[in-house]
Design a protein around this nucleic acid. Structure first.
Lengths: 193, 193
DNA sequence: GTCCCGCATTAACCAGGATTAATCGATGCC
DNA sequence: GGCATCGATTAATCCTGGTTAATGCGGGAC
């Protein structure tokens, strides 16, 4: 399994060689998903962890009235999972959909659980990944809590400049908690200065 | 050290007896803070983890213009920490302040780090705590992303009914991302139906 | 008891984003 | 090429919450 994105990911957080690496690597499969295809849907119980090898995934809350709000964008070498992966029993409140043709590495979470149960090195890696994840969610909380829509866009511009080129404006809007028309107006307003 | 809140907390997430429990218990001190007193301030580098034995703490973002937004409320038997605890180096972007006279158990995070480094049982507990924390932040993300201010109050009412009795309306407002006047209007509007 | 002070309440006015709808442009399909 | 579709843009109108300010209320300090 050459050049696993999972390896890059784990190496970034691991501070030591990981025992039984092969057990993990061998458990990984790779799938291709077309742009627009969904990886899992709200309500699914999927216990896999996914690592994006190439492409771009969005995690989406869909409201009863059909509105869609984007929880997060997952680009290359980042990971994501359905809620039931980490809290078994829980069903996902959100779905995952490819925004570009994507290659996903995935493995059953039980493999990681068992490695973390056996080796403290793996437990530490899980810890680091969780910490990273928690920090991101905390930052997002800060953005929603302390920034107005227009400032949220400025924040997006300075922290994820690539994304702005890469995804349609309406999706940026859904990520920032604004309507597409609203975001467009904000952008035009900013351009005038 | 009788009836540690820390013990209740750890027992809730641990699925097995924790080795070297005494090492942890002996590292804990208890402090009293008066209502209104601050536990740490934005910018502090505090590497302690705090467990609320009694009372109520709020974590607060303070903006340059003086506005205050509440990141979270920490009631009895829950824990909190400054950002630098988990990501050493980072300074807290928020402060912690007692809303009621409170008793806090606290211990240096390095003690937990070292226990987690030695015993996989402790590593698993850290994992469970982090997971719990991440889930809470994720839920908060969902609330801000998919709910309008008025619906956010409804959500608060159904998920934290106690809190509504316990804290001033203006703090509920700061928690929900609305101004005090705004929240009051929402509440009155709801009462009329 | 009286005085203060912080919080809740209310009202008047403002503003920024939501909504609706129409137009335009680019892309992909046939 | 012609057509359908989707997203971006723009405009008109609405609405909710922000802002400011005044009043009231209740608890604590003295």
């Amino acid at each position: 399994m050459p050049g696993l994105a999972a390896e890059t990911l784990m190496n970034r957080v691991a501070r030591e060689p990981l025992p039984d690496w092969r057990v993990f690597a061998d458990a990984i499969s790779v799938s291709r998903v077309a742009a627009g295809a969904s990886v899992f849907r709200p309500g699914d119980q999927d216990r896999r962890i996914f690592i994006v090898r190439s492409g771009l995934i969005k995690l989406v809350y869909t409201l009863p009235d059909g509105d869609e709000w984007i929880k997060s964008f997952i680009p290359e070498e980042k990971f994501f999972a359905c809620s039931s992966t980490l809290q078994s029993g829980a069903a996902a409140g959100f779905g995952a959909e490819a925004m570009e043709p994507s290659e996903l590495e995935h493995c059953d979470f039980s493999v990681l659980e068992s490695l973390a149960g056996q080796h403290i090195e793996w437990a530490r890696v899980m810890n680091a990944l969780l910490l990273d994840f928690a920090a991101k969610k905390e930052e997002r909380e800060r953005v929603f809590l302390t920034l107005k829509p227009a400032d949220r866009f400025m924040w997006l511009k300075s922290t994820m400049p690539r994304l702005i080129e890469r995804v349609p404006q309406k999706d940026l809007a859904a990520y920032l908690g604004v309507t597409p028309v609203g975001l467009n107006r904000i952008i035009k307003r900013l351009e005038k200065t």
